[in-house]
């Protein structure tokens, strides 16, 4: 192993680690606010990356069916509650958010797909399709169980994961897809030849992390999220609607997932079930960071990326083993250090 290889591996590890970092942040955010271990986080990556690749090929991605049908299901649930409580005034808002918006996006995408617009328009279309899936998922699967235990929510997450993977197979097919790179440019950095795409990934991750930080520190919604994360009951007592914070956190998670998918789509071949493994590695990163702090989770994810790239050089057959074994000592340390707290605090 010489210096060149060392540098190449670092570059590779940091690029992957940046994606894992984004996912770790999303997982942490969702877990802190709603206590959901959000297994399907990776599915947003798959949906956005494969939708982008299909749009580039001029085909209509199946994501819009998921969006419309999911929206209708969520609308039906909302409408049922509204009718039972005789709160007629809520109905127009439900129709606008869960029916009109998804249908409008679907129509727009179906119209735009065969026309093969510029890449940045396609990216916006993908975001418009994937991001609303977050709140819709929350409404359908998690909101009715918002007060259940962490374990129940986790089991729901597994179920949602399987449903989404199945849909993904139906709509995207079993073979892998790849989208065109945003920039073909390459920069020489000493011996390294860094592609513009991987710089893109790292920069976009940093920007997203900064935006998240800003949101949490300086906006009223961010503060509401933080308050809910610290103490749900307390947050409710001071008038923070926890349903809203749930929706908000899922919206952000979907946004992060969609952006990661768009970033990674030109770098690697993605399959209908690839997202799960990404999510899992983001999870390992979050655990390495102690499952509590955003900067540590990001660092942990970078460490996962680096470990992955070096172990693929030295012992490629054992790469996953090495990466996932990492969480055992970490979990042991975490559980030894923490006092045991009953999770059903209410």
């Amino acid at each position: 192993m010489n210096e060149d290889i060392f540098l190449w591996l670092i570059q590779d590890g940091v690029t992957n680690g940046a994606i894992y970092a984004l996912l770790a942040l999303a997982l942490l955010l969702v877990f802190a606010v709603t206590r959901v271990i959000f297994v399907p986080q990776g599915e947003f990556i798959t949906f956005s990356a494969l939708s982008l690749a299909l749009l580039e090929a001029g085909r209509t991605p199946g994501t819009l069916y998921i969006l419309v049908i999911g929206g209708l299901a969520a609308a039906a649930m909302e409408a049922f509650v509204a009718l039972r409580e005789r709160a007629w005034r809520r109905l127009p808002r439900i129709a606008a958010l869960y029916v009109l918006l998804p249908v409008a996006v679907a129509v727009l995408v179906a119209w735009a797909a065969p026309r093969k617009f510029d890449q940045w328009i396609q990216v916006l279309l993908v975001l418009a399709m994937v991001v609303p899936l977050g709140p819709i998922l929350y409404r359908i699967a998690y909101q009715p169980l918002a007060n259940a235990s962490v374990l129940v929510l986790f089991i729901v997450s597994m179920a949602v994961h399987y449903v989404l993977t199945g849909l993904s197979l139906v709509f995207f097919g079993s073979e892998g897809l790849r989208s065109r790179p945003f920039w073909d440019a390459k920069f020489r950095l000493g011996v390294l030849e860094v592609s513009a795409q991987s710089i893109c990934v790292v920069v976009a991750s940093l920007v997203l992390i900064l935006i998240l930080w800003f949101l949490f520190e300086h906006s009223i919604y961010g503060k509401a999220l933080r308050a809910t994360a610290m103490n749900r009951v307390g947050a409710r007592l001071v008038g923070i609607p926890t349903v809203l914070t749930g929706h908000l956190s899922f919206l952000l998670a979907a946004l992060i997932g969609a952006v990661s998918g768009i970033l990674i789509a030109p770098i690697t071949t993605l399959y209908y079930d690839t997202g799960f493994l990404f999510g899992l590695k983001g999870f390992v990163g979050a655990i390495l960071g102690g499952m509590g702090s955003y900067p540590l989770a990001a660092l942990g994810s970078i460490a996962v990326g680096l470990l992955e790239s070096f172990s693929s050089f030295w012992a490629s057959a054992f790469k996953e083993v090495i990466v996932f074994t990492l969480i055992i000592p970490m979990l042991a340390w975490l559980s030894l250090r923490s006092r045991h707290v009953e999770e059903d605090e209410e």
């Binding site: 290889i5 190449w8 591996l9 590779d12 992957n16 399959y271 070096f310 693929s312 050089f313």
Partner: peptide, 17 residues
């Protein structure tokens, strides 16, 4: 004798070897 998984994001390490 390098190995990778279908779902891997990168095979840079293996390829460098």
């Amino acid at each position: 004798n390098e190995r990778y998984a279908r779902a891997d994001t990168s095979v840079t390490g293996q390829v460098l070897k």
